[in-house]
Design a protein around this nucleic acid. Sequence first.
DNA 1: ATCTTGTTTTTACTGTGTCAAAAGTAGGAC
DNA 2: GTCCTACTTTTGACACAGTAAAAACAAGAT
Lengths: 154, 154
Amino acid sequence: MVAMETTATTEPIALLRGAGLRVTDSRVAVIAALDERPHSGVDTVLTAVATVLPSTSRQAVHNVLNDLTEAGIARRIEPAGQPGLYELRVGDNHHHIVCQRCGAVADVDCVTGHAPCLTPSTTSGFDLSEAEVTFWGVCSACKASQADAGETTP
Amino acid sequence: MVAMETTATTEPIALLRGAGLRVTDSRVAVIAALDERPHSGVDTVLTAVATVLPSTSRQAVHNVLNDLTEAGIARRIEPAGQPGLYELRVGDNHHHIVCQRCGAVADVDCVTGHAPCLTPSTTSGFDLSEAEVTFWGVCSACKASQADAGETTP
DNA sequence: ATCTTGTTTTTACTGTGTCAAAAGTAGGAC
DNA sequence: GTCCTACTTTTGACACAGTAAAAACAAGAT
């Protein structure tokens, strides 16, 4: 554990300590990976972590991501038809826009105008706790390569 | 093929013919099942269909549901952490509210007030095509049995 | 430095869904 | 009414994402 010259981009150690989680290389590396590439899946995180800690197992990444999510350090999103993705932005209620061709994800701050931004017209007796919005579209990269465009789900 | 006393609730045969799909027992049964229990998963549909056509395979249900979805007769939704669910309401842009305990799903007609109901504040260069809203909460049944909280996925 | 407890590895397994070839059936043509 | 062909269904195998559990190991307190 290095730790003296800390103050990395998101201060992984402070995040972990603050959540009462042990500071381990894997966790620090996962947080760093998510900080660099938000909306990463397990595979992407594993690849990034493996450049620093080659012995890391996929299961370890699953464990760490689950731990971080439970601790409120990370957030998991799961666009339909894709494996779960993780990001460090938590606590602010932001949404996502997903590319229907390549699966790229970008953040969307909030729906225009309204602060609570969403209230269902009928709650059907449910106790409402959260509104999740996913926008679907085509990212600029995919728009550019209009012609070929992967063959999956236009 | 029974079919004489048709005119069921959603006229499955007309739906299939209109979409250029062949009318088969399985398809009619699947449509009937979805009509009775919207937001059903493959298993639920299979159970319902099997009471009428006991030889039906799970694969057949997958095939039929995929066909119906492609034909625009059914719509697939996929709340995070749950297998895909299907419903016959298509074409109207409605949303869903999902119970965080038991997974129950109810329809929500639209977000209050606004007609286009959703526009992202920033599109990050995406061509927007659709907005999907999922509300999360606790259904009345789960509220009632607060203590134990069921585990069954209805 | 040692101990305790939490973390990671390893291996196996479950659930959800897809793929592909063979067998069977709907629906139009005769 | 009967036959033919293309579309459906069955069967069985497989892919992918994630979970489960026990043994090896490391963080942090004493």
